[in-house]
Design a binder for these strands. Structure first.
Length: 588
RNA sequence: AGGCCAGUAGCUCAGUAGGACAGAGCGUUAGAUUCCUAAUCUGAAGGUCGCCGGUUCGAUCCCGGCCUGGCCUACCA
């Protein structure tokens, strides 16, 4: 049983008894106290009620406090200020609740997604180009959502919607034939493809004949020309190999890799559907859906040259996903420049009756969907940029993802070597990998996703303060303690009675109780930083506790109690960091 | 021009059911290691929460207006 829920329920009955209102008309919420000096929990609902009942808020709060005899789990109930109700719970109950949580599966993460399906569309790099640091956010945020939704019991389908079918392939095919040696073609890499693309693209700008050839090759590809198709397939295979190497390194995996090309065959019928429904009309040679009545510009679904664009592909993709997986939600993790595009094609999907989308301004997507149609959600994030401006291939200031990861790992390695000279080199490298990548991921996940990130090496690779390694370090210290206790034969197991004698022990227990709601809130709001913030705060409290409270050197009863508390912290940190995709080495 | 997002400490950022003195990290500064990992901990300094109005018992938060920055606005994705 959720502890805050238990307190809310009881307080609600007290409100009913005190005010004589119907329980169903009351919404009573208990939250963790904003300051430990007020107590453990607080309820602010007497104040809004004052207006309805036309009574002073403080009088209401006082009546509530006196309405019912205190249950055993509440030690003290006080009114403060204009009408805050401060709750102090009994230590025994708190200890019991913490122990129950630790014994629960997945540290109490609710099974709220049972029977529901969510498709998460994330990462989605363009084929034939190396991944750069612009791809890190979608990949890391999407993967964290993926992990959290799975933990909440959802059936998750992680789909990597690769950009594998654009106009760039005509240029690539021409470039591939013209600018590569036989040997290079035999040992094709993404790097070579990138070079060829730039060369070919530049040539299109000076030589119209070249541009025409590129277009012709693209048409041949799209019409299924065997040779072009084979070349294209090679581009894709090589790109995927490269992407997968990075994904493996990042502990990211997908259920599906369905690029745009996957939907190519159903584009014509999708467009026909729009025409049949009278939604698509010809304008300036292109086929467009008029969205003026919805406050948006027209959306082109077929170009004037007859080609299909991304709107067409995205609509077709939704149709396919709905038909094949019957999802409750489809979540797109992309940068916020694409907001208009998503609003447009979401609206079109609504008009053809295959999906709904949350209304702009809706406070929460948690409200049950009014229909049984899948809910489309655009989880957008702020673009990453350099202090001097955006990344651009033309300016040549893109930072390859590999370079970023390597730099992070090498910085971590330096510190690892200093502090763990006894480790083998292999162990050091493995540890540096975990720490370096943890730093990168945490730097991203701990920010609100809408924040525009200005990239600097210093920030992205911070190893102390509010950083990934700080959390990993806290976890390693708990583990070290537990392992030492085991060596000494101390009882770190479930048998010890959990005492919460000091303020920090109590604070730790209270924080632990917040773990499940941190996870479900982070998932519901599509905001991993909610979980990251929680874990940081838990680590901070633990670090203070660790500094001032001896464990192994305390007398057995206290030692065992503290060990048990430490084991719970370890459990929560391990679970939480894993949900963020951050590794948890037992030793640092 | 219209739309979206943002403006919180010197710097980088948390703070979404409106609540008690606005929080971290970095940096600055004073301390802590005979003791379980100092990638740590404890303290100090540092704020008209962009500006003006409104709603409210109460606004960083909600509403309106303005200023500043970024992005988007028909055939790239």
């Amino acid at each position: 049983m959720n502890t805050e829920q238990q307190l809310s329920d009881w307080l609600k009955s007290a409100f009913v008894a005190a005010c004589g209102v119907e329980a169903s008309s009351l919404s009573i919420r208990v939250t963790p106290a904003t300051d430990t000096k007020f107590g453990d929990f607080q309820c602010n609902d007497a104040m809004p009620l004052a207006k309805l009942l036309k009574k002073p808020p403080r009088a209401i709060a006082e009546a509530v406090v006196k309405a019912l005899p205190l249950p055993s789990f509440i030690q003290k109930l006080e009114v403060a200020g204009p009408g805050f109700i401060n709750v102090t719970v009994s230590i025994e109950w708190l200890a019991e609740a913490a122990c129950a949580l630790a014994a629960a599966p997945r540290f109490g993460i609710p099974d709220e997604g049972q029977g529901k399906t969510v498709i998460i569309d994330y990462s989605s790099p363009n084929a034939a180009k190396a991944m750069h640091i612009g791809h890190i956010r979608s990949t890391v945020i999407g993967n964290a959502l993926d992990r959290m939704y799975r933990a909440l019991g959802y059936r998750v389908i992680a789909d990597n919607h690769l950009g594998d079918w654009g106009t760039q392939f005509g240029k690539l095919i021409m470039g591939y034939r013209a600018f590569l040696t036989d040997e290079e073609r035999a040992n094709l890499t993404v790097e070579l493809l990138e070079r060829v693309y730039v060369q070919s693209h530049n040539l299109t700008e000076e030589d119209p004949a070249w541009l025409d050839s590129c277009k012709a090759e693209l048409v041949k590809l799209q019409q299924g020309d065997a040779e072009n198709r084979a070349i294209w397939q090679r581009f894709i295979t090589i790109s995927l190999e490269e992407f997968n190497r990075i994904y493996t390194r990042l502990d990211v995996s997908f259920d599906l890799y369905r690029g745009e090309s996957f939907y190519n065959d159903i584009l014509p019928e999708t467009i026909s559907l729009l025409q049949e429904k009278g939604l698509a009309v010809v304008s300036e040679g292109a086929l467009v859906v008029n969205l003026e009545a919805d406050g948006m510009p027209v959306c082109i679904v077929r170009k004037s040259d007859g080609g299909f664009n991304y709107a067409a592909t995205d609509i077709a993709t939704v149709r396919n996903r709905v038909a094949e997986f019957n999802p409750d939600r489809v979540v797109y993790v992309t940068d916020d420049r694409q907001q208009l595009h998503f609003k447009q094609f979401f609206k079109i999907c609504e008009k053809i009756g295959i999906a709904t989308s949350s209304r702009p301004g809706a406070t929460s997507s948690l409200l049950p969907s009014p229909s049984s149609l899948p809910l489309l959600e655009h989880v957008c994030f702020g673009l990453m940029r350099l202090p001097e401006g955006t990344f651009s291939t033309r300016q040549g200031n893109v930072i390859k993802l590999d370079a970023l990861l390597d730099e992070a790992v090498s910085r971590a390695l330096k510190i690892v070597q200093e502090s763990n000279p006894a480790m083998t080199e292999t162990e050091q490298r493995e540890l540096a990998e975990a720490i370096g990548l943890g730093a990168i991921k945490y730097a991203d996940l701990s920010h609100d996703r809408q924040t525009l990130i200005v990239f600097t090496w210093e920030k992205a690779l911070a190893l102390d303060g509010n950083s990934g390694p700080y959390l990993q370090y806290a976890y390693a210290r708990v583990c070290s303690l537990i392992d030492k206790a085991a060596e000494q034969g101390a009882n770190a197991g479930q048998a010890a009675k959990l005492r919460l004698d000091t303020p920090l022990e109590k604070e730790l227990a209270l924080k632990l109780l917040q773990f499940p709601s941190a996870v479900s809130r982070a998932a519901e709001l599509y905001r991993p930083n909610v979980l990251a913030d929680y874990l940081y705060s838990l680590s901070q409290t633990y670090s203070s506790f660790y500094q001032q409270s001896p464990v192994l050197k305390s007398e057995p009863e206290i030692r065992d109690s503290r060990l048990r508390l430490c084991a719970m912290v370890a459990q929560a940190l391990n679970q939480g960091l894993t949900l963020l995709g951050i590794r948890t080495p037992r030793r640092i």
